[in-house]
């Protein structure tokens, strides 16, 4: 959404010497901290409220989640390589790394779809217990963020093919990148707080 604006960034220097769009996206990410914070807090409150349904230890598949976490982590690398490419003027490199990032993102989402179906089979749904509700809402909203990120990556890819992401406009890539990395760091927290620690607890 924020890929292109009429901020006249090229025309007028700004008061702080930074780009409007970058400032706005950081403000937005600060806001997102409060959003995911509430979801994680809800999960922490409810991860022991099982309502006689399965709990974290019963359903979590740590090896599987470790692999998908790794995939998302590496998508941050490809994202940042896309930025490095366009900053060097390599538009083809940009497109390759954008596609790679989108592909890794889609792999992660497929993993999540698989994980959710497995949990359904084992009897954990949104309705089962507060644990189920909190788990699916937190990871679901994270997945929705990744999906929006993939759409943004593909739009950026398309814009680049239309020649609308010249090296002088590498900021577009940086903005999508900031969002993408943010989604990644949220998952870093989720992997530890939602998966590893509750699953290890006796």
């Amino acid at each position: 959404m924020a890929v292109e604006t009429e901020a006249h960034a090229e025309e007028h220097a700004t008061s702080l010497g930074i780009d409007n769009r970058k400032l706005a996206i950081w403000a937005f990410l600060g806001s997102e901290c409060m959003f995911f914070g509430a979801l994680i807090a809800t999960y922490l409150l409810f991860h022991t409220h099982l309502n006689n349904g399965p709990g974290p230890r019963d359903v979590y598949n740590i090896p599987f989640t470790s692999v998908s976490s790794f995939v998302l982590l590496m998508s941050s690398l490809t994202m940042v390589l896309a930025l490095a490419a366009i900053q060097k003027g390599d538009e083809r490199g940009l497109r390759v790394w954008l596609l790679a990032t989108a592909f890794l993102g889609m792999t992660f989402i497929s993993g999540q779809v698989y994980e959710f179906t497995e949990f359904f089979k084992e009897g954990l749904t949104l309705k089962t217990s507060p644990f189920g509700s909190a788990f699916f809402m937190l990871t679901g909203f994270h997945g929705a963020h990744v999906t929006i990120g993939i759409l943004m990556l593909l739009s950026l890819f398309q814009l680049s093919r239309m020649g609308k992401v010249p090296p002088s406009d590498s900021l577009k890539v940086e903005l999508v990148g900031l969002y993408w990395h943010f989604v990644d760091v949220v998952w870093i927290v989720i992997f530890t707080v939602v998966y590893l620690i509750p699953a290890a607890k006796k």
């Binding site: 970058k22 997102e32 901290c33």
Partner: peptide, 13 residues
């Protein structure tokens, strides 16, 4: 400034 805005969000949360 970016660091501050982001950390403000994290710390507040």
């Amino acid at each position: 400034l970016f660091r501050r805005v982001f950390i403000l969000g994290i710390v507040l949360a």
